[in-house]
């Protein structure tokens, strides 16, 4: 299973993108998107903002997902908050911190 993870700013702009594969069941943590799927990833992610936005303003909750994904999100969120507490970070700026990237990768290995 391959994952494409992105954090998106308030103007639909990508703040952070990361592709990785599963580390469970003998996976090596590498993303294996087909050529066809890969170039659509960003489009699909962008278009799913419609749904996210609707949920955000109606129920305010994310739909029930797998426990593993939820844990992954929680851990990444914690690190994200820490990362953007940097005094040099401005809102909607791309997150370039290599430490953050490492931590996301670690969370991915741990849960997915």
């Amino acid at each position: 299973m391959s994952y494409y993870f992105a954090i998106i700013g308030t103007q639909d702009n990508p703040l952070f993108e990361y592709e990785f594969g599963t580390s469970k069941q003998g996976g090596d943590g590498q993303a294996r998107f087909g050529e066809q799927a890969r170039h659509l990833n960003q489009f699909i992610l962008h278009s799913s903002l419609d749904i996210v936005e609707e949920l955000q303003w109606t129920t305010g909750q994310l739909p029930q997902t797998e426990e593993a994904i939820k844990n992954f999100f929680n851990e990444v969120y914690e690190n994200y908050v820490k990362a953007i507490m940097s005094p040099f970070y401005k809102a909607n700026q791309e997150i370039k911190s290599p430490i953050f990237r490492q931590k996301v990768a670690a969370a991915g290995r741990k849960y997915l």
Binding site: Q11, D12, N13, H39, N41, Q42, H46
Partner: peptide, 17 residues
């Protein structure tokens, strides 16, 4: 129509496609 700046073109991969 989406009330955001930029749309999908801010995504490099999408822009290339």
């Amino acid at each position: 129509k989406v009330p955001r700046e930029g749309g999908v073109a801010q995504w490099r991969g999408a822009r290339e496609v």
